[in-house]
Simulated scan of single mutants.
Amino acid sequence: MSVQLDSLIALALAAGREINAVREAGFEAQTKLDGSLVTIADQRAEAIIEQGLRELAPNVPMIGEEAVAEGRIPECGDRWFCVDPLDGTKGFAKGGDEFTVNIALIENGLPTLGVVYAPASGEMFAGEPNAARTARCDPHTAEIVKPFAPMVANTAATRPWRIIASENSGRDVKTAGFIGALEGVPAHASSSIKFCRIAEGAADLYPRFGEVSEWDAAAGHAILNAAGGGIMRLDGAPLIYGDRAGGFLIRGFVAYANDAAREAALAALT
């Protein structure tokens, strides 16, 4: 069964509406067994996405952050959905705006379709093979108010390198050393917005040292691929998804805008 990117966009918008509704009504954060935070917004958004994907592609399993936390982990196979219903829960719980809905389709270990939607700002990013695009939505209604336009990552060997990283982990010693080795200009952002800043040409590199879950990266990875960039592991190997035995964890990566940025990153990592 063919999965259309527009269908994933519609699901992300529906989840975003629910997240904003919970935010306006008020909520309390809880702590999961792994120590991470969860809110009713995470749970309701994932329920909307899971039901929508089941109707859209009933034979394609979904690996979702909250489903995994509940112990619902289907066999992936060659084709599956990778979902983070609310990426950036910690910032969301504190009242911040840089949280996203992430939906990706994984095929043979690689993300081929991806949607990242930021409900608070209305920013929408989407990608399919060789075509990335961005739009602006009304945060209150999730209706598209600025139509989709093509999006392309920077193709030049920019100097100094513009390096974006997480608000918290992006300030650690390894990240600081990476930025220093490249004599880069640092910037900070939260959630999957970092991938999208590279995809839209506003940054060149995003290093991440330490573990993250596959659902934190898959949608942004698909969009960045579509915009002409990519992601590699810290040793330069391709990032392949579906590591069930490893708990769907990624042990570090660098996202890059172009080949020159990739080579510069590899030099800084050695």
Rank of each mutant, 00 (worst) to 15 (best):
K94D: 07
G96L: 15
D97G: 07
E98R: 03
E98C: 11
T100V: 09
L105F: 00
N108A: 15
G109V: 11
L110G: 06
G114D: 04
Y117Q: 01
P119A: 06
F125Q: 01
A126V: 03
A126W: 01
G127N: 05
G127R: 02
E128P: 01
A132H: 03
R133N: 03
R133P: 02
T134H: 00
A135P: 03
A135F: 00
C137Q: 05
C137D: 03
D138A: 06
P139A: 06
H140R: 14
T141N: 11
E143L: 14
P147E: 12
M151P: 05
V152I: 15
V152K: 08
A153Q: 11
A153G: 12
N154K: 05
T155W: 12
A156K: 13
T158K: 09
R159Y: 13
R159L: 14
P160M: 06
P160R: 03
W161N: 01
I163H: 07
I163F: 15
S166Q: 12
S166C: 07
E167L: 12
E167N: 10
E167K: 09
N168R: 11
N168C: 09
V173E: 10
K174F: 14
K174T: 13
A176T: 10
G177Q: 14
F178L: 14
E183I: 13
E183Q: 14
V185C: 11
P186H: 07
A187T: 13
A187P: 03
A189W: 08
S190E: 10
I193D: 04
E200M: 02
D204F: 09
L205P: 05
